[in-house]
C-alpha cells in the first residue's frame, strides 16, 4: 500500500515535471531591445511601443510560436547588451555591416535604407555643396555611432574635403541645430529624415539621397544560442517578404501582394505620424491578441486602411 503510494507520487511528480516543462517551452519569452523612439521604425503612444520593427518582431513571434518582451534601450548600449547575451534580440533599425556582424549575428535582411541629407530651404545649398563643407558653417550633423556619420568620415573627410562632422546623441538634436543654423546639413536614414520634415515643413527639405545600400536586420548574440534566427527568417517569409539577389548584385525584396508585409510597409512609410498613431490606437488590439497568421493579416489590413482615412 505504502509502496504504491510512493510510486504514484513519483509518477505524479514526473507528470508535473514534464507537463510543467512542456508548458514553459510553449511560453518561452525572449527579451527584445529597441531604441525608442525612432519613427517610423520605433514609436511610442501612451506607454505602448509600436512601429515597423516592433510590429514585425511581434508578428514573427506569433508565427514562430514564442513570446517577446519589448524593452526600451538606449542606443549607446543596445548592441553591446545583445552581444553580451543580456538581451535576446535587437530590433532597432540595425544596419548589417561587417564590424557589427563580428559582434552579433543578423537575421535575413528586411529593409533597404539609404541616407538622406536634410538642409535648410533658405540656405541655397545643394547635396554636393552641403556635404563638402561649402555652407556657412562647413559642418554636417549626424547621430553618434550611426552609419550616416561614418559615411561622412569614410567618403567625404577621407577624400580630403574640409567638412566638420558634428555628432549628436540623438537625431532630433541634430535637426534642431540645423534649424538654428549651427550646421549646414544632417545625414540620416531616409525614413527618419522624412518624418523630421513634418516637424519643420517650411524650414527644411531633403537635398538628396545617397545610395549607401544598407540593409537592416534583427540581431541575436553571436552563435544564436536560442536558435531564433531560422525561426525569425521563416516567419518573415510567411509574413510576405523574401530577399533575392538581383542581377545588378543588389539584394532586393520580393513582397507578396496583399500580405501582412505589404500592408505594414504602406502603413509606416508615407503617411504622417499623426495618421500612424491614430491607426495604431484603432487596430492595436488585433496585433496584441493575435494568435495566428490570419489575425496578423487582419491587423496589417486594418492599419493600412486606417492611415488612408
Amino acid at each position: 500500500m505504502k509502496r504504491k503510494l510512493v510510486i504514484s507520487m513519483v509518477v505524479l511528480a514526473l507528470v508535473a515535471l514534464v507537463g510543467g516543462g512542456g508548458l514553459a517551452a510553449a511560453q518561452e519569452t525572449y527579451t527584445v531591445v529597441s531604441d525608442i523612439p525612432w519613427p517610423p521604425f520605433e514609436m511610442e503612444l501612451e506607454g505602448e511601443f509600436f512601429g515597423f520593427d516592433l510590429d514585425v518582431i511581434r508578428a514573427s513571434a506569433v508565427v514562430a510560436g514564442f513570446k517577446v518582451d519589448i524593452q526600451n534601450c538606449e542606443w549607446s548600449i543596445l548592441v553591446s547588451s545583445v552581444q553580451a547575451g543580456a538581451k535576446d534580440i535587437g530590433a532597432s533599425g540595425l544596419t548589417d555591416f561587417r564590424e557589427r556582424a563580428e559582434k552579433v549575428d543578423f537575421s535575413n535582411h528586411y529593409w533597404l535604407a539609404n541616407q538622406a541629407v536634410v538642409i535648410r530651404k533658405d540656405s541655397g545649398l545643394n547635396l554636393v555643396s552641403a556635404m563638402t563643407g561649402k555652407g556657412p558653417t562647413g559642418a554636417v550633423g549626424a547621430q553618434r555611432a550611426t552609419t550616416g556619420g561614418w559615411w561622412v568620415e569614410d567618403n567625404i573627410q577621407a577624400a580630403g574635403f574640409n567638412v566638420e562632422l558634428k555628432q549628436y546623441s540623438t537625431y532630433p538634436l541634430a535637426i534642431l541645430d540645423l534649424v538654428a543654423g549651427r550646421i549646414d546639413a544632417v545625414i540620416q536614414d531616409e525614413p527618419a529624415s522624412i518624418s523630421s520634415l513634418t516637424a519643420f515643413p517650411d524650414e527644411l527639405t531633403i537635398a538628396g539621397i545617397i545610395n549607401t545600400n544598407e540593409y537592416f536586420g534583427f540581431i541575436v548574440p553571436k552563435g544564436d544560442p536560442n536558435g531564433l534566427l531560422p525561426r525569425i527568417n521563416d516567419a518573415m517569409v510567411v509574413l510576405g517578404v523574401k530577399t533575392a539577389m538581383a542581377s545588378t548584385g543588389v539584394e532586393e525584396f520580393e513582397i507578396t501582394e496583399g500580405s501582412f508585409w505589404e500592408n505594414l510597409v504602406a502603413t509606416y512609410f508615407g503617411p504622417p505620424i499623426e495618421k500612424i498613431e491614430a491607426a495604431w490606437s484603432k487596430c492595436k488590439n488585433l496585433l496584441l491578441s493575435a494568435t495566428c497568421l490570419e489575425d496578423l493579416e487582419n491587423y496589417a489590413r486594418c492599419m493600412a486602411d486606417a492611415v488612408k482615412e
Partner: peptide, 21 residues
C-alpha cells in the same frame, strides 16, 4: 548607461515634437 529614467523618457516628447525640447 541606458537607465530608463526621466530624462530618457523626455525623448518621447522631444523626438515626437521637435519644437518642445
Amino acid at each position: 548607461v541606458g537607465l530608463n529614467e526621466i530624462l530618457r523618457h523626455a525623448r518621447f516628447i522631444t523626438e515626437r515634437y521637435y519644437n518642445l525640447a
